[in-house]
Amino acid sequence: MQAFVKTLTGKTITLEVEPSDTIENVKAKIQDKEGIPPDQQRLIFAGKQLEDGRTLSDYNIQKESTLHLVLR
């Protein structure tokens, strides 16, 4: 499924993900596309910070959801 990641600069990245993907996995995909190390990434969805060990389905993130990427 497709999900979108919006950065603070307003850029939107499109990712191909599965509901079973972990947040860690998603961060690795963002690193592949953008070169941002996962340890600098914080992903926010519905106002919550997403934890590495959880999956997209844990957070009820469905296709075409938009996550927000904040860098630390």
Rank of each mutant, 00 (worst) to 15 (best):
I44K: 05
F45H: 09
L56R: 00
L8G: 13
D39A: 13
M1P: 02
E51I: 09
Q62R: 10
G35I: 02
V5N: 01
L8K: 10
T14A: 09
E51M: 11
T12D: 04
P19N: 06
R42Y: 14
S57Y: 09
K29G: 02
E51Q: 11
R54L: 12
T12G: 03
E34L: 15
T66R: 06
R42A: 11
I23N: 01
A28C: 09
T66A: 06
M1W: 12
G53M: 09
I23H: 01
V17D: 00
G10F: 03
G10E: 03
A3L: 15
T14G: 05
L43G: 00
N60V: 05
T22F: 08
D52I: 05
T7W: 11
T9L: 10
N60E: 08
I36W: 14
E24Y: 15
R54M: 13
I44V: 09
I13Q: 01
P19A: 10
E64P: 04
Q2A: 09
E16H: 11
L50M: 09
D21R: 01
T7D: 07
L43S: 00
A28Q: 13
L69S: 01
D39W: 14
D21E: 09
N25W: 09
P38R: 13
F45T: 02
D39H: 13
T9I: 07
G47E: 05
V5S: 01
T66N: 06
D39S: 14
L67M: 09
L69E: 01
L69M: 08
E34Q: 07
I44P: 00
L69G: 01
A28K: 15
T55G: 02
I61Y: 05
L50H: 00
H68W: 15
L71F: 08
S65F: 13
S20M: 11
T9Q: 13
T66K: 06
Q40I: 12
R42F: 13
K29R: 07
P19S: 10
G10V: 02
D58F: 13
G35R: 06
R54G: 05
K6M: 10
D32Y: 10
D52R: 04
E34S: 14
F4K: 07
K63G: 15
A46R: 14
V70Y: 13
S65T: 09
D39N: 12
L15E: 00
T9K: 10
L43Q: 00
K6D: 05
R42Q: 13
D21V: 03
K63T: 14
K29Q: 10
A3N: 03
K33Y: 09
Q62M: 12
K29D: 02
A46T: 05
T66F: 08
E64F: 12
K6W: 06
I23W: 02
K29C: 03
E51T: 06
I23Y: 01
V26N: 00
G47R: 04
E16T: 13
G10N: 05
R42P: 01
V26F: 04
P19H: 07
A46M: 14
D32R: 12
Q62H: 12
T9H: 13
G47S: 05
T55A: 06
S57H: 10
L8F: 13
K29Y: 07
E16Y: 13
P37I: 05
I23Q: 01
P19E: 08
Q2D: 06
T22P: 05
N25S: 14
S20K: 09
S20T: 13
D52Y: 04
L56F: 04
Q49M: 14
F4G: 02
F45L: 07
Q62W: 09
A3H: 02
Y59D: 01
E18H: 15
H68T: 11
R42E: 13
R54Q: 09
D32K: 13
L8Y: 13
F45Y: 14
Y59K: 01
Q49P: 11
E24V: 07
T66W: 08
E18I: 11
T55P: 05
V5W: 02
D52Q: 05
